[in-house]
Design a protein around this nucleic acid. Structure first.
Lengths: 96, 96
DNA sequence: CATGTTGTTCGACATGCGTCGAACAATACG
DNA sequence: CGTATTGTTCGACGCATGTCGAACAACATG
């Protein structure tokens, strides 16, 4: 998708909660409900706050949401992002 | 410098004025006064606003400022950034 | 010294953002 | 059907942010 805007993407990543979420997505296999992704981290926020952050990530084009029965599954739009901004995700998700 | 924080850096870059400034720095040879860097762009802001954005970039560790007589010269801290966050600047400053 | 150029600092102001709890909706499970 | 579970939506609230003009400081230049 070419409507991916770099400023919007960087702004979405420039928040501790959202960056942690994206890195957890990139690290974990991806078989979690969207509310569980941050369980292994030190981020403690309410459901409504999480929902708000996920909306920002989705609108920035970083993630895609699929509904699975009761819950939702969030996936990284890695291909689109790597095409549009080569190296960005790799650099941002690198664990040192 | 190891106090470079990824969230802070991304947040600093997640603004149209500041991202444009960094990209102009990376593109231009670097022989401009700090107030001239944005002259070739479509960014029109006051001196005080620019000063504020440059402070944020400096505090995030993205730039370094040297005083040259009357004016100031802003340089990208490319080495430090490339060491700490390999590929980030390249990906963010790539012109397509 | 007087004036101009270049930035910074200082309020002030409007807007945006992150946060929460409560209420709601939709599915899952007895 | 009744109750959990999982998220979203809706105000509301406080704080941060981007913006500006005016005043200031430092150097340059006549």
């Amino acid at each position: 998708m070419s409507e991916l805007d770099l400023v919007t993407v960087l702004d979405a990543l420039g928040d501790r909660v959202r960056l942690t979420y994206i890195r957890a997505l990139a690290a974990g296999g991806g078989e979690k409900r969207c509310g569980q992704v941050l369980d292994d981290t030190d981020i403690k926020i309410s459901k409504s706050t999480l929902s708000h952050h996920l909306q920002i990530l989705r609108q920035a084009g970083l993630t895609h949401t699929t509904i699975q029965g009761n819950s939702r599954h969030i996936s990284l739009r890695r291909d689109d992002l790597d095409t549009r901004f080569p190296g960005l995700l790799d650099s941002v998700c690198r664990m040192e």
